[in-house]
Design a protein around this nucleic acid. Structure first.
Lengths: 150, 150
DNA sequence: CGCGTATACGTGTAACTACACCTATATGCT
DNA sequence: AGCATATAGGTGTAGTTACACGTATACGCG
């Protein structure tokens, strides 16, 4: 085959998004490193601080696999920032932020803010607004994980 | 504590982006599952098909850690889709796509296209164009991994 | 030629991510 | 009460991601 066929996927939305995610994550993580916490963990902690919920509820909000969330919480629990207790339904687990977790959030907030500000500065207020709008639009339109099969 | 201080990070660009990435990845992976390949692997394979390069060059293009790329290539090598040979400089590794890899690409392309089309359909041609533009704009503005330290 | 430095990779470690499958408990129906 | 089914989590396995550090080879200078 002479033309070798035009193999695209250089315009793969998913790949482009993943590349951007890699870059952004590195920037945030660099800022948060001073508090020895990653942006993924900080986000989790901040979200958990919104109120006590079960693992399933939390996972559904984040649209993350329950097992993924369970494992991502492990380091936070190990640091004493998050507590996991048996819920009303003994099958469920209630996720809560501890006092230490709240202190950690408070200590990390300025660093996160600096990261966010840097990104906004580099991108420009308008541009980041557009980016957010597009992200939200996509999140609004794209199908949600829906129900698990098994 | 009544006010508890306004802890944000619900507008964290990184977190929103990661959420969107999770959703998109699931969609693409669902389509590609019929060919037992993930979108990350397909992207890697398609990119590798652009020409033989060293690991470092490839990693720089993808803005991915060399060690990450090395490990992500492992499954592709195991499947016989990608070959890794010692380069001109014996320290370097030359990454190439095998004949089997090209066949795999050909077989997978329609599935990827369906995934991409579904995303475009759900988002709408205009919207996905905007999303891409914003992603590219961000990629153009944000600092590149720059130099490794060590 | 030999030594110091820079470069190219690999390994160790750790976290993020998801699917398949297992266990335990709740719930509804008979 | 008893069984079938559904729901909540956990474990196994595998892949994605990056940083710190180690090894090997190249390269330049004395």
């Amino acid at each position: 085959m002479a033309p070798t066929a035009p193999i695209p996927s250089f315009g793969c939305t998913c790949a482009r998004l993943r590349k951007l995610t890699r870059r952004l994550t590195r920037i945030y993580d660099a800022h948060l490193a001073a508090q020895a916490i990653k942006v993924t963990q900080y986000s989790l902690l901040a979200n958990a601080a919104r109120g006590e919920r079960t693992l399933s509820e939390f996972a559904a909000e984040l649209e993350m696999d329950r097992s993924t969330l369970s494992r991502n919480l492990a380091p936070l629990v190990a640091q004493g920032w998050v507590g996991i207790a048996v819920g009303a339904d003994p099958r469920s687990r209630s996720i809560s932020v501890t006092a230490a977790g709240r202190r950690k959030l408070k200590a990390t907030l300025p660093l996160w803010r600096k990261a966010q500000c840097e990104v906004e500065a580099v991108l420009g207020k308008t541009s980041i607004g557009e980016l957010h709008r597009e992200i939200e639009r996509a999140l609004g339109a794209l199908p949600t994980p829906s129900g698990r099969h098994t």
